[in-house]
Amino acid sequence: MNIKHALSPLCGVLVGIASLGLAANANAAGEAIHIDRHEWNYGGIKGQFDPVQLRRGFQVYQEVCAACHGLERVRFRNLVEPGGPQFDEEAVKALAADWPNQIIDGPNDEGEMFERPPKLSDPLKGPYRNQQEARAAQNGAYPPDLSLITRARGVHNDSPWYLHVPQMALDILSGYQEGGSDYLYALLTGYKEPPEGFELSEGMSYNKYFPGHQIAMAQPIPDEGAVEYQENAGATSSMKQNAEDVTAFLAWSADPSLNQRKQLGWSALIYLLITTLLLYFAKKRIWARVKH
């Protein structure tokens, strides 16, 4: 039958072209550092952000990361919106009013720029006005804005070449794109004693997962003395729990529409499968009129 004839080249081409996509993700690295995959409750095709976890993650961001890193693509109002931490609006207004980093506004009627506390529509400013100020304060290192960090980092498909295509197919079918989260979690939990003979420069820390293993950021969440959660926070505090929560929070800040997108994904998929099936049978009916 001609469908089979059609499908054999089609399959070949599809699998083939798919492996191009694989290759696209398979960036080469000077030294391959394997990053373990972590279970994320927002991962895969079903995962959704858990507001309770995002609230814990925000607490870690606020108490740890915010000392150096801004989150300037996120606005205070986003903290209230569905799909995110969903804080109470009044609480966020109070949070904004007390935010340590002020908004530079102006000019006022005297022509002067002035500082004011942020409002709901303002971004979560970091402590530095610009990269130069940040570098001056941080011995030349630049703490990047974290708004997009989990999308701006990734992991490579480091399977051997003969497993590239199966691994890629698996990733596509399982909807895996949490590479950035995996990397960030590995980084936050990857501070170790440097191995024998490792030359660590002044002011740098050893990190198992950072490229080159020397990172200017000192261990942000200490092994002992992690950020304490409140009683009703839904998890007990630990370094790893802190790291997981703040990663989830930053994943949300990079991709705030994830919940909405995946929900639409499921309705779209169900609709498409039904319609495609109907179209298939309709096509069969039409072709039943002629020999083919």
């Binding site: 996509g21 095709i45 999308r151 990734g154 794109q177 779209a268």
Partner: peptide, 12 residues
Amino acid sequence: FLLFLPDYLGHA
């Protein structure tokens, strides 16, 4: 790809 893997074909 659009709804489950929008970043998959791009670059971090």
